[in-house]
């Protein structure tokens, strides 16, 4: 079979990326991040404008770095959802235009499935229990009978959203990302401040923890009861312990010997370390990737698109609308047994 090259475009949140993947090889994967001022989050309108301003330059970069021309691309994949509406449309509009200009098939990809397939490709994990943790999603996922099934998830906000919003409370810089800066500060934390621990069966809840810390943070800091570093440390320990607990329970349920962490929060080394301890105790293997592939990127959409394309899937233009809500288990996984 001839090599199949897929171009992937991602822009569902504050990262915009273009990636080229050819039969399991990442040829290029440039990305830009919209970084709001400290104390602020990213809003749909300004994020979409950021993406509009750099998506075309990123496409040229991806092709140049891979040494490819448009004629070498077999399929154009883009994120159909879930995510923020305005940024999603921006990237979808470009993907549709490219597919038509080059007369190549178009493929709408589920963002979550993109993360899972990228994680599997990079780590070589065969059939892992997946912990998908990012600014918009928190899910524990296992594959069964042509679906990525959600075993547990957040019942309110995503773990990354909890971290991002905590960073805003302390006015921690969003450059390169709030989560990265919290991680660095947490390394200097000395004291574990007690926070609510809210695992509900297979699910987790983070909004109460956030409200609690929002309420007590400034008082505790003003009285010298703890330092900002202690708060970062305590928040990470609490949130990650909850994630490890539900992942372990899913692994026990599935008899799984592999765990895979994907999503932007997945590049946090403390989370990886805690998951590693749990996996070692169970005699299981942990798989994780670094920020190039954990954090949203174009290649992950290309890779999921490649898997879909080789099993004959394409998206007709009239069906190529984006959707802010698109659950991981809505996708029929035609490319796995």
């Amino acid at each position: 079979m001839p090599a199949v090259t897929v171009l992937g475009l991602e822009g569902s949140a504050n990262k915009v990326g273009t990636g080229l993947v050819r039969d399991g090889q990442v040829l290029s994967n440039p990305r830009r991040t919209f970084v709001p001022a400290p104390g602020q989050g990213f809003l749909p309108g300004q994020t979409a404008r950021h993406h509009q301003g750099c998506v075309l330059a990123l496409l040229q970069e991806a092709l140049q770095e891979a040494g490819l021309e448009s004629a070498d691309v077999d399929c154009v994949a883009y994120t159909k959802g879930p995510g923020m509406g305005a940024p999603l449309v921006t990237v979808a509009v470009v993907a549709r235009t490219l597919a038509q200009l080059w007369n190549k098939p178009l493929l709408g990809v589920n963002h979550c499935v993109g993360h899972i397939e990228m994680g599997r490709l990079i780590t070589g994990a065969q059939n892992p229990t997946v912990l998908y943790v990012s600014g918009g999603n928190t899910q524990v996922i296992a594959y069964s009978e042509r679906r990525y099934r959600i075993f547990g998830e957040t019942i309110d906000i995503a773990v990354g959203n909890c971290l991002d919003r905590f960073a805003r409370v302390l006015k921690i810089s969003n450059d390169p990302s709030p989560g990265y800066n919290i991680e660095q500060m947490a390394k200097k934390g000395q004291k574990l401040v007690e926070l609510p621990y809210t695992v509900k069966g297979m699910d987790v809840s983070f909004s109460g923890i956030l409200s609690h810390i929002e309420e007590v943070a400034h008082k505790m800091l003003a009285s010298g009861e703890c330092t900002p570093e202690d708060l970062c440390f305590s928040l990470q320990e609490t949130l990650f312990a909850m994630l490890v607990e539900i992942t372990e329970r899913a692994m026990a349920h599935c008899g799984s010997q592999e765990a895979l962490i994907v999503g932007g929060v997945g590049c946090n080394m403390r989370l990886q370390e805690m998951m590693q301890i749990m996996c070692a105790e169970r005699g299981a293997k942990l798989f994780a990737t670094d920020e190039r592939f954990c954090i949203d990127n174009g290649a992950m959409i290309a890779q999921a698109g490649w898997e879909m394309f080789r099993t004959g899937q394409v998206t007709q233009l009239e069906d190529s609308w984006i959707t802010q809500r698109y659950r991981t288990d809505e996708v029929e996984v035609t490319w796995r047994d």
Binding site: L56, L59, Q60, S70, V94, T97, L98, Q100, L101, W102, N103
Partner: peptide
Amino acid sequence: TMEMFGPP
């Protein structure tokens, strides 16, 4: 996009 990656 058409200007940069066209003509069709």
